[in-house]
Design a protein around this nucleic acid. Structure first.
Length: 400
DNA sequence: AGTCCACAGGAAGGGCAGGCGA
DNA sequence: TCGCCTGCCCTTCCTGTGGACT
């Protein structure tokens, strides 16, 4: 029985019209040959980094812009072109990209340094050495040959929030001790007020140049989508209005191009799965809903058990506006039933705040006068998504 | 204006795991 | 083997706080 239904799916898939030419152009990793609506920013990055080609040290720079505004893509693109030109002219340039949000890879001072050492061919243990020793290894390897090193720290705000700006202070000072190499830092962040939080000494040396990437507007997003859609879908596969709708929805979410491309891809996949010949606006609506649910479910799945227990307690409480104390009591019951260890109220309060930061809960601190000060907690997701979460926690993690 | 509640949230530190070097 | 280092999760202790109540 199951076999025939599987075969039905496969033969239906084969018989159905082919909608996609290739999905590559909608992938996050795709590097287009030309980047639309970012000429000004790319020129600026290029002119800042150009001194490399004369073996001079470029200024350190900060790149600001919200998610999906093309910061990382443009920086990578410019550096790629720079490396090509350097190679043609026999100039020695090394570029290192580090994403500071990569958990367990580059989210602490030690790990960033370990990653840097690795880039220069020195394998250091994932933990154990004093940080000073790592700095020494890094400086030695960096200075081992005459070269201009461009170090791009993507999502630099995540690193500084977590471990402070000590590491940036040390990295901006490193050139004083180098004889052969020159190190240039390029910080990429989506927090526009990030530099305000830095130590003034770090700020002045790191913030020598600033490039701001404004959000894309709906028209710009439409151009980007049109270009990518041509490479992705068969001619005539996308109905009128689809691109506009994706662009408009993404423009509402602070002009996020990544979001727009995701919408288009998921909409295409939904249409293809239904065996349809065209992609229309209904598929975009479905894609929007699916992306939202998937995002939340993925977040919930990857949370630690204790956070899941708290979420379970909140999702199963009839009261739409719960307090910290109330939530904590329910959470204790859940732990008892599930045989989990019960965390202290202090830690539980932090976990509730973290769920708030993830956009799953709405958490507001309010004062109820005589009745104290507390957090007001409610679910920030739709009823449909909440049911999905409950189902997932029940099925995958045996909550009941 | 002062009191009081129910926490918020910062600081310090404990305990554990993983690892290095002598 | 031991002392030391780091990261991580957590507890304990403490001070601070907004606003209803007196």
């Amino acid at each position: 029985m199951a076999q025939t239904s599987l075969q039905k799916i496969f033969s239906g898939y084969l018989k159905g019209g082919k909608l996609f030419l290739s999905k590559d152009a909608l992938a996050t990793s795709y590097d287009p040959s030309t980047i639309t609506h970012r000429d000004k920013q790319m020129d600026l990055v290029a002119s800042i980094l150009a001194p490399c080609l004369r073996n001079e040290k470029p200024s350190n720079a900060f790149v600001y812009g919200k998610t999906g505004t093309g910061k990382t893509l443009c920086v990578r693109h410019v550096i790629g072109e720079l490396a090509k030109t350097a190679k043609e002219n026999s100039v020695q340039i090394k570029t290192v990209f580090i994403n500071c949000k990569m958990k367990k890879i580059a989210d602490t001072e030690y790990r960033v340094l370990a990653q840097l050492c690795k880039e220069f061919g020195y394998d250091v243990p994932p933990t154990g050495l004093p940080t000073n020793r790592l700095y020494e290894i890094f400086y030695e390897s960096l200075d081992s040959q005459k070269q201009n090193v461009l170090l791009v720290l993507d999502e630099i705000d995540a690193l500084v929030t977590k471990v402070g700006d000590n590491i940036l202070y040390n990295l901006t000072r490193v050139n004083q001790d180098l004889e052969n190499a020159k190190l240039t830092l390029i910080g990429v962040t989506n927090d526009l007020s990030f530099s305000e939080t830095l130590d003034p000494r770090v700020k002045s040396s790191l913030n020598e140049e600033e490039i701001v990437f404004p959000p894309y507007n709906a028209l710009e997003l439409r151009d980007i989508l049109n270009e990518r859609a041509k490479l992705t879908f068969i001619a005539g596969g996308v109905k009128d209005g689809v691109i506009q709708k994706c662009a408009a929805l993404a423009a509402q979410e602070h002009g996020d191009a990544r979001r727009a491309l995701d919408l288009l891809r998921v909409a295409g996949e939904i249409a293809e799965r239904n065996g349809e010949q065209f992609l229309d606006e209904v598929h975009v609506d479905k894609a929007q809903e699916k992306i939202n649910v998937d995002r939340v479910l993925e977040t919930v799945r990857t949370q630690p058990r204790q956070s899941q227990a708290i979420l379970w307690a909140i999702a199963n409480n009839q009261n739409p506006n719960q307090t910290t104390g109330e939530t904590y009591e329910k959470y204790k019951e859940v732990c008892k039933k599930r045989g989990l260890e019960v965390l202290g109220p202090r830690r539980a309060s932090d976990l509730i705040s973290e769920l708030g930061m993830l956009g799953i809960l709405s958490v507001h601190t309010t004062s109820k006068g005589r009745h104290g000060r507390t957090k007001e907690i409610s679910l920030l997701i739709s009823k449909h998504t909440t049911e999905n979460i409950k189902e997932t926690l029940k099925k995958d993690f045996y909550f009941e």
